[in-house]
């Protein structure tokens, strides 16, 4: 099987793994974002808790979860291997290098952006995923027989997002994610050879839109709880009438 190992240890082979895992992780972002939008539902967190219980217990989701672990693992591993090769390719730097005149900052700093995202990911997983999976969360309680034994992840979210430095970390991480996607989305297609003068401008535009929408929507979550809700996730009285009228208007 040496042709397989040769393929995936070549510079292009490694880039192809980077691109496939990167685009796969983009699909994860969509699922994660759409699910988390339930945080904005004004039901005391019921919908979000039911959703998170489903995600934590459904056997299909739990299986796909391993794919996600592998996706992150290979993306990070290949990034390290490629970075090592690339740094070895130019051991002596230029005295004067004006790369800002021929390329974008985001494109040249994917490693730094990715590392920032990784730091965020570790904090994020520890705070929510780890507690949801291995205990440490309160139960919902109440009278509903079906849901009273579910973990109350919603309250963990609410309390975390009332800590100022935690909110700051989340928003900063979304900037890193946004810039990472700004280059990464289109770059993934280019690496797979999917470049065509008709479609590449469209792919790039979709990538830029994807980067902005996904990172802004994720950043909106901690900001929303920090700025507009009390310790129980209820809207503070100042914003409550506004949201109420908006909800009525949407109905």
């Amino acid at each position: 099987m040496s042709w397989i190992s040769k393929t995936f240890s070549s510079s292009i082979g490694r880039k192809i793994v980077m691109s496939l895992t990167g685009l796969f992780l983009c699909t994860f972002l969509v699922v994660h974002l759409v699910g988390n939008l339930q945080l904005f539902k004004h039901d005391g967190g019921t919908a979000f808790n039911v959703y998170s219980h489903f995600m934590g217990t459904n056997p299909i989701i739990r299986t796909i979860e391993w794919g996600l672990v592998l996706g992150f693992g290979f993306h990070i591993y290949e990034a390290l291997m490629l970075t090592r090769r690339n740094q070895g390719a130019r051991p002596q730097k230029y005295v004067a290098n004006h790369s800002e005149q021929n390329s974008e900052w985001t494109s040249r700093n994917m490693g730094i952006l990715g590392s920032l995202i990784l730091i965020f990911l570790i904090v994020h997983l520890y705070n929510f995923f780890w507690r949801a999976r291995f205990g440490g969360l309160d139960k919902i309680g109440g009278t509903d027989v079906e849901t009273r034994d579910y973990d109350n992840l919603y309250m963990a979210v609410v309390s975390s997002f009332h800590v100022w430095w935690y909110v700051l970390l989340y928003v900063a991480a979304q900037f890193s994610l946004g810039y990472h996607l700004w280059h990464g989305f289109g770059s993934g297609f280019q690496t797979l050879g999917l470049n065509h003068r008709k479609y590449t401008p469209l792919i790039k535009a979709v990538g830029y839109g994807f980067a902005v929408v996904v990172s802004a929507a994720f950043a909106a979550m901690p900001l929303y709880f920090f700025l507009f809700t009390d310790d129980n996730g209820q809207l503070t009285s100042a914003v409550s009438p506004l949201v109420h009228s908006l909800t009525l208007a949407l109905k």
């Binding site: 292009i12 390329s103 494109s107 994917m110």
Partner: peptide, 13 residues
């Protein structure tokens, strides 16, 4: 790869 050139990051420079 043998010559030791780096890999492409699609930077475009």
């Amino acid at each position: 790869d043998i010559e030791g050139f780096g890999a492409c990051s699609n930077i475009g420079s």
